[in-house]
């Protein structure tokens, strides 16, 4: 029993990641509002950031600054990567939102159900 709890706690970050990931995807799939979909997408991407960052943390490790007093550092590598990923995510979100604005200008609605039924699928 105790080992199960230990397992759970030692990898609780993964459970959070999975929860975020799945709820983000669920929002993307289930919502018809284009903005809400983008929110879900952002959540989905955020889960990935945590996926990268959390394994980089080493117990008792400090921030990766060279100093004589410390010998254990957290890995700085994921942070670098995730900075890039965040930039990419922002760019995607910005582009997505601006597309939504344009859609609203052109069609007068941002509900996918109305748009896709009327426009894309009826030739």
């Amino acid at each position: 029993m105790s080992s199960a709890i230990y397992n759970f706690i030692s990898s609780y970050n993964y459970y959070i990641i999975i929860f975020l990931m799945v709820s983000g995807l669920f929002i993307v799939v289930s919502r018809g509002n284009m903005v809400k979909k983008l929110v879900g997408l952002a959540l989905f991407q955020t889960s990935v950031y945590i996926l990268y960052i959390s394994p980089g943390k080493i117990l008792n490790g400090t921030a990766p600054i060279l100093d004589d007093g410390y010998s254990v550092y957290s890995s700085p590598f994921p942070h670098v990567l995730i900075l890039t990923a965040i930039v990419v995510g922002i760019a995607t979100l910005a582009l997505g939102l601006s597309l939504v604005i344009r859609v609203n200008e052109e069609f007068g609605t941002i509900e996918e159900d109305e748009l896709f039924d009327n426009e894309l699928n009826n030739e």
Binding site: A85, G96, L99, E106, E119
Partner: peptide, 24 residues
């Protein structure tokens, strides 16, 4: 064609999911 906007949005959602799955 204004439907290009919808197509782009659709692709943006799917494409981002794809890229994110890749990065996972």
């Amino acid at each position: 064609d204004r439907r290009g906007l919808l197509a782009a949005y659709q692709y943006l959602i799917i494409g981002t999911i794809g890229a994110t799955l890749y990065v996972i």
